[in-house]
């Protein structure tokens, strides 16, 4: 079973909790990792800043850096008005980042390798943009689909493309994160299984197994980068989409 690269994505029910209609909602390994991520983030931000020191220690400094990093990302892409979504973007960024990085620990489960999770996160962004856009601008929100300075005869085409690209946002937003994490973990597992396969084939095999081992080490470093990068990309796209809700005129 160690050589099955798909097994790591299995959802395992740990214990049943409650029922919604006929569906049993169990506490799963995925749920455990989500709870773990929330606990890690909360501990990082609250316990890390317990001393409230003027000259921060390591953990507090990192917490402050993360705060400033997300705040600057929002300010530069969505303006100061975007800061009302700061907790939302911060929650998305830290949740995805933490879940991705925990998933890199061997034998750990990666929550974001399930399309339903990333789709839900992307949909929450999409709905926030829609609700806030219409609440703030009313029907003027449709200006988003009508770029200024476009000749009238190609306007219908442009509007069609704009609407289509707007509607496809949650899809690309969710699939990007999901596919990156899934592909990375499958690749890691495949190369890792080569090590065990070659390693069981005698001395020469063991020598050969060093190659996939080196590859796994390099891939793990790459996946660490991807884990951060995908969380950042998700957050910055969220900011860009929110900017559309805040300033619908192009």
């Amino acid at each position: 079973m160690a050589v099955d690269p798909i097994h790591q994505f299995q959802i395992i029910d740990l214990f049943p909790v409650f029922k919604i209609g006929n569906t049993e909602i169990a506490f799963t390994n995925s749920a455990a990792y989500m709870v773990a991520a929330v606990l890690v983030i909360t501990a990082f931000l609250i316990v890390g800043t317990a001393k409230r020191s003027l000259v921060p220690g390591r953990v507090q400094s990192t917490a402050e850096l993360t705060y400033e990093f997300v705040a600057n990302t929002i300010r530069s892409t969505a303006g100061t008005e975007g800061m009302r979504f700061f907790p939302f973007v911060f929650a998305l960024f830290t949740f995805i980042l933490t879940v991705n990085i925990i998933g890199l620990i061997p034998y750990a489960f990666t929550v974001t390798t399930h399309i339903i999770v990333t789709a839900m996160l992307a949909l929450s962004v999409f709905l926030t943009v829609l609700v806030y856009g219409f609440w703030k601008h009313g029907l003027h929100f449709f200006n988003l689909f009508v770029p200024k300075g476009i000749p009238v005869y190609i306007l219908p085409l442009i509007v069609f493309i704009e609407v289509l690209s707007f509607l496809s946002r949650p899809i690309s937003h969710s699939v990007r994160l999901f596919a990156n994490m899934l592909a990375g973990h499958i690749t890691l597992k495949v190369f890792a299984s080569f090590i065990t396969l070659l390693g069981s084939a005698g001395i020469i095999g063991m020598a050969g197994a060093t190659l996939p081992l080196a590859m796994v080490v390099a891939l793990t470093a790459l996946e660490l980068l991807v884990a951060f990068l995908q969380a950042y990309v998700f957050a910055i796209l969220t900011c860009i989409y929110l900017n559309d809700a805040i300033h619908p005129g192009h």
Binding site: I11, T28, A31, M34, I41, L45, T94, F95, I116, M120
Partner: peptide
């Protein structure tokens, strides 16, 4: 597995959001 994942995601993410917005941030 979608239903349970959705439920737990909503629970944990909303919890995270509230903790961040009210206390941590």
């Amino acid at each position: 597995t979608f239903a349970s994942q959705l439920v737990w995601l909503v629970i944990t993410f909303v919890l995270l959001y509230v903790v961040l917005a009210k206390v941590a941030l």
